[in-house]
Amino acid sequence: MVIGKERTATSLGLMSILVRFREVGILFFTVLLIIVVSILSPVFLTAHNFRDILLNISILVIVGLAQMMVIITRGIDLSVGSMIGLVAMMVAFTVVAFPGMNPLFALLLGIALGAALGSLNGAIIAWGKVPPIIATLGTLSIYRGLVFLYSRGDWINSFEMPMGFRQLSKGTPLVIPNLILFAAAVAILVFLFLRYTQTGRDIYAVGSNPQAATVAGIRVDQVIFIVYVISGILCGMAGVLWASRFESAQTNTALGFELQTVAGPVVGGVNIFGGSGTVIGVVLGSFLLGTINNALTIVKISPFWQLAVQGLLILLAVIVDSAILRRLQTATKQGNR
């Protein structure tokens, strides 16, 4: 699934077919799950419940897309949960201090703060040559510690937050809740970015083969730096939306979220070794995770069994997906001959 610069026209055609097929496994699994759960419970297949699932995965999609771009470059960003928590806390305090502030400005503020945090990750990784997992494991602790130093134990509760800020994620001026629209907009933007901009294509090239990318004149360090800044930006945005949606900023906001944001892309077929991954895969992967969570509650699985079933389903999804992919690949190879 190399989308490098040196691809030929024929391989492009072949690849795009494969890429289109790539999400079949995960789609198949999702549909199967929906059918089973619908039979088990009538409340599952309602517009209302569908809306709840989408609301629950919106933030996961936004951050999952950031994580995907990082993973494509053979990296990983474990600090996402801490970045979200820190931005949520800082923006929430600011919004409470200036209740008249335009919520969109709060969103921009969050994006700027996130960009700063992401650029620190980027600098350590791209310029300092520290392996991504180490750098972001470090900033995971550091940023979370800063959340605490900043809040000094105070939480922002919903009654303190101005209504306008809460409406940022909850409002429904376009019928669909804003939060879902934000996630959709981010998905479309990331899709366009990866497909139609030079930097976007460079991300795949760097991940597929760093040496070849360097030879081809791509400034690898710069691409990697940018990817972590983007991750920070999307986490900043997610932090603001998180504070708005849950109407609170607490010291443990988004604690442990990082592994979920890796799970979404991984279930969605993003190659953990870099080089490949699609927006639609991440959206589908996140949707599957959201559906699993929702279904477990609705089918009234004992709360003590929920995590086990969830883990088992993720494992199954990954195995089924890889089996289907392997089938497809052998089929394509034979077709070629």
Binding site: V262, V266, I272, W305, Q306, L307, A308, G311, L315, V318
Partner: peptide
């Protein structure tokens, strides 16, 4: 099965912990 270790252990990270809850509640 040739799945990446990170992917496998991320899934079993949830599954095994879930089994702990299933056992002791």
């Amino acid at each position: 099965v040739k799945l990446p270790a990170l992917v496998v252990t991320l899934a079993t990270y949830a599954f095994y912990r879930g089994m702990a809850y299933a056992m002791l509640g």
